[in-house]
Computed example of a mutant assay.
Amino acid sequence: MIANLDSPAFVPTLEDISAILEDAVEQGASDIILKHLSPPIMKLHGQWHPIEDLPAISIGELQELIRTMIGEQKYADFEREKEADFRLSTPQHAFRVNASFQRGGPKLTFRPVPKAPPALQDLQLLEEDRILPVLKQLIELPRGLILITGGTGSGKSTTLAAMIHHINQHYRRNIVTIEDPIEFVHEDQKAIIAQREIGSDTHGFAQALRGVLRQTPDIILVGEMRDPETIEAAITAAETGHLVISTVHTNNAPGSISRIVDAMPEGRTNQIRTQLAATLKGVITQQLVPRADGEGRQVALEIMLVNQPIQQLITGGEGNLNKYYDDMATREADGTTLMDRQLAVAVQQKIVTAASAESRVMQPERYTRYLQNLPASQQRPSTPRNAWTRP
């Protein structure tokens, strides 16, 4: 219980903020924002709402909160860099936190994450009988590169955590993760898992990747391939017999290839295409679409499994998305899945509205054909328990 909220002398403590965050999560919030001179706000089912009966917070109060959360040394780094990412645990929940500056004062963005990683079955996938075996097939590969892509807030970290959790439950593997920050904490089950956080355990993705091969990993999780050095190191690790899993911010599977190639300096693009064609095994792109019943969001996946024609498109520098999609559309029997198919299935099953789906389709004509030709599926329960509704 938070006391004295109506008092002008109220100065929020970490315990007060923890109570605010926990109450917001219990209401179903996917994000909570604190910024100076404004009351806290939370995102419920894709819409922002003020948290009622809470006062605005001053710059000084936010500064003290951040200092308490991360300590003096990291706070000094935050003031210098103007950005910080970290994990915060409250008695009931855990949060990924971004600290930044706006209008000269701090801003905190909290995203709740479950304290325990989800199982693949918790994702409540559309066409689960088709999709789940493909995710298991990819994560059980002995070597290669797997990419999870999507926009900010599309649930990439949740899918990554579920895949790692699957290995941890079933296989004896040595897994090293490099994260910024650590979100889901994995306890050793069958696997051995070392989780390294940027800032506290290593200085950066590229540096951690340079040393990771001496740690004899079977699987390497790279939180994000965000710069040329990290991209090269991750692909090299995949070339040398490791399974590497990472994320890229793109909204379709073929576009992730262009994003990686375009990130490289001039003169290195041909080599990276060759390496990427040889190592890339699959790309999973996802979106979270508001459910028609207002109860959370539904995940929709696009899965591109890399075969010889896709490899030839990569090495040839082909950037025409339609050529990738034409090949993918012919291979649905092997688990390859287009986003337009998943959106059509969601509309058929009345899980999402037609308007929500149509705003996210990649190829409208193909989406329409799916709506017309896919066999009607059994409708799901209206309020499934899944990883996207709330932690």
Rank of each mutant, 00 (worst) to 15 (best):
M1A: 15
A3M: 10
N4R: 14
N4M: 13
S7C: 06
F10R: 09
E15D: 11
I17N: 04
A19P: 05
I20E: 12
L21E: 05
E22R: 14
D31Q: 12
I41T: 12
M42H: 13
G46E: 13
E52H: 12
L54W: 14
S58R: 10
Q63M: 09
L65G: 13
I66A: 00
T68C: 10
Y75F: 15
A76Y: 11
F78Q: 02
E79H: 14
R80I: 07
R80V: 10
K82Q: 15
E83A: 13
D85S: 05
L88W: 05
T90P: 02
R96P: 01
V97P: 01
N98S: 10
S100H: 14
F101K: 09
K115L: 13
K115P: 07
A119R: 07
Q124N: 13
L126N: 04
Q137W: 15
I139R: 08
I139Q: 06
E140W: 02
T149E: 03
G151R: 03
S154W: 01
S154G: 04
G155Y: 01
G155M: 10
L160M: 14
M163Y: 04
Y171A: 13
Y171M: 08
N174P: 02
T177K: 03
D180M: 04
D180Y: 08
F184D: 01
F184Q: 09
H186K: 06
E187L: 06
K190T: 12
I192H: 14
I193L: 09
I193M: 06
I198A: 10
G199V: 02
S200T: 15
D201C: 00
T202D: 01
T202N: 02
G204E: 10
G204D: 06
F205L: 08
Q207C: 06
G211M: 11
V212Q: 05
P217R: 11
E224D: 07
E229R: 00
T236G: 14
A238E: 06
I245P: 00
T247M: 13
V248C: 00
P254V: 06
P254T: 07
S258A: 11
D262F: 00
P265L: 01
G267A: 00
Q271I: 04
I272W: 04
R273D: 04
T274G: 11
L276F: 03
A277P: 02
T279W: 02
T285K: 04
A292R: 06
G294H: 11
L301Y: 00
E302N: 00
I303C: 02
L305Y: 09
V306E: 01
P309D: 07
Q312N: 04
Q312P: 05
T315H: 09
N320W: 12
N322R: 11
T330V: 10
E332Q: 09
A333M: 09
M339W: 00
Q342F: 07
A344L: 02
V345L: 01
V347D: 05
Q348I: 02
I351R: 01
Y367G: 01
Y370A: 01
Q372V: 14
A376W: 05
S377I: 11
S377T: 15
R380L: 10
S382C: 14
W388I: 05
P391L: 07
